[in-house]
Simulated scan of single mutants.
Amino acid sequence: MTREPRYALLKPHTLRDLMTRTADGSEISGRALASAVGIPHGTIEGLLNGKTRTQPAHVARDICRVIGIDVGCLWAETGRKVPDDNAEAPA
């Protein structure tokens, strides 16, 4: 079974800025964004305050879809050059 790639949020403050004016010109709250993506509100808060740095690829894509930007504007796929700070340590 292949594990879904994770994406690292490059700049939390950019996400916050983009939430104030989405692609359609409206503002979206953290709660509304979380609801639209189907994730807990605490996940968005963690991303915005820097406590959470990575998300599964589908979550990163859905956040970008809701605010109306390309995924590469906010996220980088984790790997050799972008560590996955939320990854579980090998057993």
Score class of each variant (00 low, 15 high):
T52H: 07
D85I: 08
M1H: 11
E88M: 08
G79F: 03
R3W: 09
L18P: 10
W75S: 01
I63V: 14
H58P: 15
H13G: 01
P56A: 02
D62I: 02
P83K: 14
L10M: 12
T52G: 04
R16F: 11
E4L: 10
T14Q: 10
D17A: 13
R80L: 10
G25Q: 09
A91Y: 04
I44S: 00
S26Q: 15
V37Q: 02
I63F: 07
T52P: 13
E45R: 13
H58D: 09
A34K: 01
A76C: 03
E27N: 12
A36D: 08
K11D: 07
R6C: 02
R6K: 07
D24I: 08
E4H: 08
A57K: 05
G38N: 05
R65S: 11
R16T: 08
P90K: 04
D24P: 15
W75M: 01
P12W: 05
V59Q: 06
D84I: 12
P40L: 01
V37M: 02
A8I: 08
Q55K: 01
K11P: 00
M1G: 13
T14R: 15
Y7E: 02
T78L: 03
R6Q: 03
A76Y: 00
P83N: 13
A91V: 05
A87H: 06
A36W: 07
V37N: 04
N49K: 06
R31Y: 15
P83Q: 14
R53C: 09
T78A: 09
L74T: 02
T52D: 00
H41R: 12
N49I: 04
A60S: 10
P12S: 01
S35I: 02
L15I: 01
T22W: 06
P40C: 03
L48T: 00
